[in-house]
Design a protein around this nucleic acid. Sequence first.
DNA 1: GATGAATGAGCATTCATTCAT
DNA 2: AATGAATGAATGCTCATTCAT
Lengths: 227, 227, 227, 227
Amino acid sequence: MFITPIMNGCLLMQTLKDEVRKAILNAALTEFRRQGYQQASMRQIAQAAGITTGNIYRYYSNKEELFEAIVGPVYKMYKAYTTEYSQTMESSITADELSKRQYFVMVEKTIVGLFKTYSTELMILLNLSAGSQYENVRQELFTFTEAILIKVWATVREVSKEPLTEHDRTLAAMLAGTLVEGLSFIIRSHEEAAAIELLIDQLLDVYSTGITELLRKIKEGRNNDDA
Amino acid sequence: MFITPIMNGCLLMQTLKDEVRKAILNAALTEFRRQGYQQASMRQIAQAAGITTGNIYRYYSNKEELFEAIVGPVYKMYKAYTTEYSQTMESSITADELSKRQYFVMVEKTIVGLFKTYSTELMILLNLSAGSQYENVRQELFTFTEAILIKVWATVREVSKEPLTEHDRTLAAMLAGTLVEGLSFIIRSHEEAAAIELLIDQLLDVYSTGITELLRKIKEGRNNDDA
Amino acid sequence: MFITPIMNGCLLMQTLKDEVRKAILNAALTEFRRQGYQQASMRQIAQAAGITTGNIYRYYSNKEELFEAIVGPVYKMYKAYTTEYSQTMESSITADELSKRQYFVMVEKTIVGLFKTYSTELMILLNLSAGSQYENVRQELFTFTEAILIKVWATVREVSKEPLTEHDRTLAAMLAGTLVEGLSFIIRSHEEAAAIELLIDQLLDVYSTGITELLRKIKEGRNNDDA
Amino acid sequence: MFITPIMNGCLLMQTLKDEVRKAILNAALTEFRRQGYQQASMRQIAQAAGITTGNIYRYYSNKEELFEAIVGPVYKMYKAYTTEYSQTMESSITADELSKRQYFVMVEKTIVGLFKTYSTELMILLNLSAGSQYENVRQELFTFTEAILIKVWATVREVSKEPLTEHDRTLAAMLAGTLVEGLSFIIRSHEEAAAIELLIDQLLDVYSTGITELLRKIKEGRNNDDA
DNA sequence: GATGAATGAGCATTCATTCAT
DNA sequence: AATGAATGAATGCTCATTCAT
């Protein structure tokens, strides 16, 4: 390509493919974050990217594929982590191995790390993917977190030789859910990785302390209610 | 059908307005809960209410107004509570008056009470109002909760004659946000009022304990990190 | 419905459902005949029917269904006839039973009758259904006609104890194909049932005579060429 | 790439225009045969020709012109033949000059010869030109063939000093149409010139024999004609 | 009051054509 | 000469809203 510096500076260059791709991804990220997958408009994305409606399809052959380009890679990482972690958890956990605190450490090394790095994408994945192939991810993450908490509960109950009550399960589910929501919130509200990391750590600290104390109370017998 | 005004007034028994209105509200509540404001279909609501598409517009002149009819009253109560509470908070709080625990008690008496009673409407308001005039309510609630937590923090700092740090604020914001998310999750995941109430209590307990402990640590000087 | 004669005569009545349905079918028939299934435009059909684009979907939920409404019934009849006829043919035919002429008589009672009655629909089915679920119908009819002609050829060959040559098959296929085309042409070019019937009869007469003579020549040994 | 006019003219060997042109024509022939004029995709043609989408427009300024390049020459020949033949036919034909058989001989020397040589182009012209300027060619060919058959009929009628009946005309039209369809079918169904030639000959034989016989019957007075 | 047919602007997607490079 | 990114009008289809009855 022959472009004199003057031409380059003064005239409109034809936008290069990669710039456009980035512009599309940028616009799409914004639009998906604002409207969610289903309500997002390809027209709007194109306009925000500064291109025409038709041109967007040169880069991504449909809305789903564009969505995939944004959240797909993050989902794959997330999936790899959870799969690996699930296996570890299944194989080797006893009351000693898995202290309540250790749970958070492990989670932190996997999912939470992802949260810190790809916060926006995960937020979209968790909150705004209805209608896409990813609409069950939030449920997946919830189920995964729930399984961990159930494990923790079971460990605690084991010590006192009691079975898990129905309420234990409900409680674990609730805490898993609210924890996931909390993490979602943090990544939704902040942009800077360092800030996100610190806040996640502190949220986990609050949950950890609170849950530990709650478990202690429950163990002391003040868990007198089931659904 | 040709009906003279007289016949109309005297002879024909027609479906009572109020029954229909209730049927619409019922159907709309269900639809909005399932699909959110934007994805909800007026056709679907009409059908579920057992009336025709057009008739719905005799009761509510558009989708927004129907949405308003469902979430508006709850929003007004919420607004009244928060306004009143904000004033109280502003005027008279000292370190003594507002113990850390007291905060939760007050919140519980206002917002949380609303959560327990109108959980579905609040859930819609907080989670499914994108595209409507209420789409910022979640943000509002967050701001409100944040203000309370900031107050709590300030109280704590006051004792040791220190000013609120930037990180204090960020932390308060995060905890407010995640708490709101947690409450949202609970009302999103459960239908029964009793279950919701219990879970909210326990979530608040976890937060309360965790935050108290966090504040204690901070007071002890181990809060050496800012964003 | 209360309509004074005056109102009825003077003001525009809301078009009744059935009128609209007919208008749509009419417009669609015209459009499909002119453009074929794939190139036909729903907008164009709507416009020709005097309604709006959206309204057409109240009557037919998509293009394929509208096409189906037009050609489907005719296809079903056609299918019933050919199926029944195929069975008859398979079970009982000998050289005596199936004279060359008889073939045409049988075909006439089945397919040709249909051709006479639903000429436009069949024309669309045979010539303009690419892209729809009916795109193979022409091939089907061709295969069916071919099978009959092969049968006739076989009968002739049998008399002289010769096997069917490859060229016999090619010839039968060609004649089947051109016959189908010829029938298609007739129904495409004429509207009146009586005229269509007479022409079909005469085309069959030409084919019958020509083929009979061709077969005679072939039998006399002047069929010394194969592909 | 920056190329001075001089460099451009002297040094760079570029793909020869004619190779590209041939590649385009080749690809276009294939695409038009497979998809027809309207459904054919310029992108697909370019790709098959191994060039870029835009470049195709340096050779043919639009789809219609490309189509023209493929079927135009064949159409011109066809037109020349039919024009010449029409004149011959008009000026000098008597019952003696134009025996019934002679008709087919003449047609064969003109149109049919074209069919045999440019079968693909003619097939496209006759079957797949909807939407282009050539969409009426099939009709033209039909009209031409019809004119010939009318002439034949007239000749036959002349002998017995009878005028042409309305039915004579309808019959001639039908036979002309179905013959054209038959020829179309053959060139649509086969690729090899030899096979096409043989089949066309045999189809004409069938028509010739059949029509001759039909004319004989008519002459013998069993022509009880309808509307 | 109620009906439901009709409207029309909106959506995702395709594709012949243009044009800066 | 050639590229291929970009355009924009068209397509099938949906849905909140209107209005004659």
